[in-house]
Amino acid sequence: MTLTALPPIATSIFGLLAIAALLLTFVMLGSRWLDHYLYAFAAESWMIAGLSATVGIYAGYPELILIALLTIVFRGVLLPYLIWRIIQRQAADHEVEAILRPSSSLLVGAAAVIFALVVAYHIGDDLGLVGTVAVLALTVMLAMKLIGFLMLVFRHEAISQVLGLLVLENGIFLGAQILVPGMPMLFEIVILFDLLVAVACFGILVRYLRSAIGSTSSLGLRKLRG
């Protein structure tokens, strides 16, 4: 079933959830405290799970309901819990130190969204999809990608960088639910497991970093150059 044939209520719900996720990304970009950052990430994952479930119900992909449940378990509960444990264990400053002030980062983030919209509009135009939810999905996908990169660049605390990476993946996952709901399910399930392994690896590395360098800020990583 194609996207254009869906009832308007379905596309409205998709749009609402996608925009809610994008707003939560802005919450992350603007927040000063690691805990808030983490809550916003968890909430965003729940939005994505909601989106998977709605797409599954309206577009007729029952397996997406399973993906939604797994998303809640992995991205919504397990990953935030793991990261929360890393934060607790290293007992670091819970304040995110950013290179830019939150207000300036929000502005840069807004510029990123506009850029994403322009790119998405051009592609939608090329495919004859202007005015459908596909353009919105592409915009949100690209915008979350760009904002994720902004977070990686602006923040130097190891944990906020890990969260930045997870936002990158959340963006792709979100867009994929709307654009390609029929994508093989195995792929999505394996990616969820892969994320779990990745976060576990990051957890170990953060501990090593702390013991070898004495801080988890990437500003301390300046020995290797040239």
Binding site: G148, L152, A158, G164, I172, F202, L209
Partner: peptide, 21 residues
């Protein structure tokens, strides 16, 4: 586990993970 190798490992996993996303 030297400071240099930890720095290299952290840069490696961050840059490559962000890249292949």
């Amino acid at each position: 586990r030297t400071p240099e190798s930890m720095e290299a490992a952290w840069k490696y996993i961050m840059i490559v993970s962000a890249g292949i996303s």
